[in-house]
Design a protein around this nucleic acid. Structure first.
Lengths: 204, 204
DNA sequence: GTCTATACTGTGATAGAC
DNA sequence: GTCTATCACAGTATAGAC
């Protein structure tokens, strides 16, 4: 692996572990056992490193959100949600300090907001399709609040777990998926809700 | 107002506006047009300032959470929730950078976690009482997830609005209250849900 | 590509005069 | 109580040798 790539990967690792504001360019170079000067040969600023990593995140999440996903099965939605949560966990440094990070990196802010918007659209699309096939019952106002609620929960689930339980653990993702699905559950018909309970005992 | 109090109030104001990590002791003294030395005469560290302000927050929220609140009326719950959101808004610097702030101020972390726990208990207590009086229908597993969901939403609503809409506005609190109530709505009986819709048009 | 050395800036905090 | 002066240190970034 080239030095440039090593810097990016180590930065992501440290950002996630310690929080982006607590990671200095000196720490990154120290951990890689290269000189700070060397780091600045490859990147002209810390902003450049972060922006490039954000690009990875953006590409991966967009790929997910733009995938057809015309699935009607609850189990497929569960799987899709799990991929979303994996993406969030992989780039959790963005989420851990969202407000702060977005405030200090203006370009990233606009791009992140677009992603959130896209997530709300994707969320509404799934809900609407569930509604049209008759397995979900809700009026427009409920549907809108539900769509927003799903995105909010997905966005902040890890933070919530971090502040209440400290460390990130493996099962937190599955718990997050369940928490989101629970939001939809009360609007589902009996058959779908039954399927949900089976999934819960299987995965949790 | 004594200088000591001026420092605390200005700090809270700046913390909320700019985020605690972006507020330096120099900025605080500058804004008050006093010298940094003077600030450090009154407080031996920035941590001391933050901890004292956190004490205000803690006292106020505990007062709220320990108030009897045996209300059975949905409208009373709406009002109670509004007070909670007002408290969050008043000390939003804690919430804006929760993960980061709790990581850097260890004492505050433990105390904040206790508050979150207390909120979950309060939330469950209200839900259980609604259940016992027959206006809410849910099983134990649903009740637990709902209680957690309420606290999560209340905790991160402002952050969610900040990253999606930028500025804090007056109506965000009422929206937050509505968003939380919406979580409970699908479990309510028809009469209570009707009352809720009236409240929505009245307040939002 | 990589290193050493260094400049510049911002931040928390202290000493000592008034 | 308040000020000026100053320290110590950390973080970003650059220059120039190898």
């Amino acid at each position: 692996m080239k030095t440039r790539d090593k810097i990016l990967h180590k930065s992501l690792e440290l950002f996630n572990e310690l929080g982006e504001p607590n990671v200095t360019t000196l720490l990154i170079s120290d951990e890689l056992e290269i000189s700070p000067g060397n780091l600045y040969y490859h990147f002209k600023s810390k902003t450049d490193i972060l922006t490039e990593i954000f690009g990875w995140y953006e590409r991966e999440i967009n790929l997910l959100l733009e995938s057809p996903n015309s699935a009607t099965d609850i189990e497929d939605q569960w799987f899709f949600l799990h991929l979303i949560f994996e993406n969030i966990a992989k780039y959790r440094f963005i989420y851990k300090d969202v407000v702060n990070v977005l405030e200090r990196y203006d370009e990233v802010k606009a791009r992140f907001q677009k992603i959130i918007l896209k997530k709300r659209e994707a969320s509404l699309k799934i809900l609407t399709s569930l509604q049209q096939q008759g397995s979900l019952r809700a009026n427009d106002s409920e549907l809108a609040a539900l769509g927003e609620q799903i995105v909010l929960t997905a966005t902040f689930w890890l933070n919530y777990k971090l502040i209440t339980h400290g460390e990130l653990t493996e099962d937190m993702l599955a718990q997050g998926v369940y928490q989101v699905i629970s939001l939809v559950a009360p609007f589902l018909d009996d058959e779908q809700r039954e399927q949900l309970n089976e999934l819960k005992t299987a995965y949790l």
